[in-house]
Design a protein around this nucleic acid. Sequence first.
DNA 1: ATACGTGCAAATTGTTTGCATCTAT
DNA 2: ATAGATGCAAACAATTTGCACGTAT
Lengths: 158, 158
Amino acid sequence: MSSSPRLSGQEKQDASLADILRARGLRLTAQRQLVLEAVYALGHATPDQVHEAVARRAAGVNITTVYRTLELLEDLGLVTHTHLSHGAPTYHAVGEEQHVHLVCRGCGGVDEVSPSVLDGLVADLRGSRGFRVDVGHVALFGICRQCADQPASESENL
Amino acid sequence: MSSSPRLSGQEKQDASLADILRARGLRLTAQRQLVLEAVYALGHATPDQVHEAVARRAAGVNITTVYRTLELLEDLGLVTHTHLSHGAPTYHAVGEEQHVHLVCRGCGGVDEVSPSVLDGLVADLRGSRGFRVDVGHVALFGICRQCADQPASESENL
DNA sequence: ATACGTGCAAATTGTTTGCATCTAT
DNA sequence: ATAGATGCAAACAATTTGCACGTAT
């Protein structure tokens, strides 16, 4: 079955998923493929958003299964999650391009920048404290340029 | 209102709280004083922990009130909150010494370091993107030295 | 006196668990 | 066939809301 070295990205996903599951004595199911594909397709997503996406492809998949599957996939090292703003965890595929989130407390917008902005910090913390920053998990809160410019005048919303 | 320059820290808290509330036409209540004092005393605390602390001083204060009061105090600029690990918001007083949290995903421990480690990053993001990082809100996830050292062998804890 | 604040209970939202059934292997 | 996976409902936890009563001003 290793006779066809030409696989699409998704086929590779599914193939490695199958392998990884098999290596653990776990089963490959449609739901697990769908959840993994959804995470890849969405880039970022909360469990709820993943559920929506999956449901569009195959109605009837329970959100409970999405939770269980995300946990499993994370355990398998295929996805991770970050905590943006409030308590909403957002999942993304491991191996995706890493990025740092800039969350504006003014407008609520989320921007992304290259993790390279953290290089100095990462080296610093590692040297001084032996702490390895997980660059894929960083979310920085603050005020974006736009919100900083307008003098917080009509920023009142209800 | 600047007639008595000699006040204890707590008296100052209460005094300014009263002033700030009055300026908005809001009322000074025992609950509001207690919640603010609890946040100062605890340093960091989840709404639940604040509630516990308040309840020790005055049983019967409802957690609903704690939520509403924390929101109010944040609105007044007296406290802020950060999101550590999962979804637990932790509140702390504004003006308290700022610090960056290092959260270890291995052992779950939370360490604190001076915000000065972010100086370079902050300047960078401000220059390149106009984004003002809220230094008091930063939590960095990763692996601490101890967990990094032991080869993830017996790191299993139930 | 009067509007603001609180307590209590119920409603929400997000996530987890128990269990009978189903299915990949 | 058989252990693992899923769906459904109920259990949970955290937070919010509606409303009548209480109280700071």
